[in-house]
Each structure stands twice: as C-alpha cells, then as structure tokens.
Amino acid sequence: MATAATGLFRSSIGRKYLMALSGLFLCTFLVVHLLGNLQLFQNDGGVAFNLYSAFMANNPLIKTIAYVNYAFILLHIIDGFYLAAQNRKARPQGYAKVDQSKSSSWSSRNMALLGTIILVFLIVHMKSFWFEMKFGNMPVTTIEGESYKDMYSVVVEAFSQPWYAALYVVSMFAIGFHLYHGFASGFQSLGIRHHRYTPAIQNLGTFLFAILIPALFAAMPVYFCLKNL
C-alpha cells in the first residue's frame, strides 16, 4: 500500500490530485478567513475584531486547522514549482511564434507566475500579522476588564500605508486570476466533470472566487488607507 501510494503521487495525475486537493482546501480557507476579517468594518473601535483574532489564536481546533492549512500551502507551493519545472523540461526548445490566445485563457497559462506573486504576498502578510501576533511586541487593549493583544490597531496601521494597500490590491488581482482558472481546474483534476454541474462550478469560480472574494479582501486596506488620507 505504501509503495502504491508513493507510486500514485509520483505520477503526473497523482501530483495534480495533490495540487487540486490543496488548492481547493485553500479556497475554503479563504472564505472563512474573509468572513472573519469582515469584522474590521464594524464601527466599534476594533472590539469585535480583537475578540475574533484572540479566538483564532487560542482555540485548539482552529490552531489544528491552521497547521493543516500551512501544510497544504507548503505542499501546494512545492508541488506547483515541481510541476512547472517538469513542464519546462517537456519542451526544451520553444516555438519561435506562439499564438495561444485563441485556445486557452491567460490565467490558465500563467498559474505559476500568479502563484509566485501570491507567495511574495503571503510572506509579507505572515510577517506583518501572524509573526507579530505570535512573537512580536504587540500593543494591548482592554475589553470588558480583560486585556487583549490589539491586532486591530496593528492592521489599521499597516493598511493606512499606501504602499501596503497597493501591494494588497495587486495581490488580490493575482489571487483572482489564479482562482479564475484554478477553482474549476481543481475539480477537473479530480475527475469531477458533468455537463450539468461543471458550468455551475465555473460560474462559482468566476463570480465568487475570482471577483467577489478578492474584491472584498482588497476593500479592507483601500478603506483604511483612504480613511487615513
């Protein structure tokens, strides 16, 4: 069984199962992450957001899911770069003239480039918030007599800087284009395709994952940046 499993995940199709499973898991994570972060828009000086971020940092179940999430991100990145390298090797000499615009979408041809932009974003993002929350020197706030790390003011301060807001907006475009192809592609990689359901999956990928979710994420830094002007 062990050898069967390693054989499976060494094959081109098996590696795509890993890509799809990790990618689609990250998509569900994105939804949960967005719903939580929308509390930034509550006009309460950050009370709801700070309670939420303390809950996320301390709840054992959330912590476990977070570690699964990190593992999937790593798997997705490593597998993605491995596949991209293999694909280059499959065509050592390229064409002098290529016209792929009529046969495939730009996103589908640039998944590794888009992924690399997302990776740069993730590093900055984790440094500013995850690392600070865990190891940094956080400001403290008091809510109903108890003291909490004041994540809200850290976020607001970061988002008020125009360069930071700009990085977010660019990165959310990258996520949008990555998922414009990626969400539906993940289902195809797992063999889930049906003439009735596949168009619905593609629409969900386009309208929810490529447009609405990145737009709402981008709205947060834009809102705080404009507020600070």
């Binding site: 590696r15 795509k16 293999q86 792929q100 592609s185 990689s189």
Partner: peptide, 10 residues
C-alpha cells in the same frame, strides 16, 4: 517525458 496537465483546454 510528456508534461503535466494544467487544464488549459488548448
């Protein structure tokens, strides 16, 4: 030595 499928649909 064929490449992997990215589902571009080309």
């Amino acid at each position: 030595g064929f490449g992997n499928c990215t589902n571009t649909g080309a």
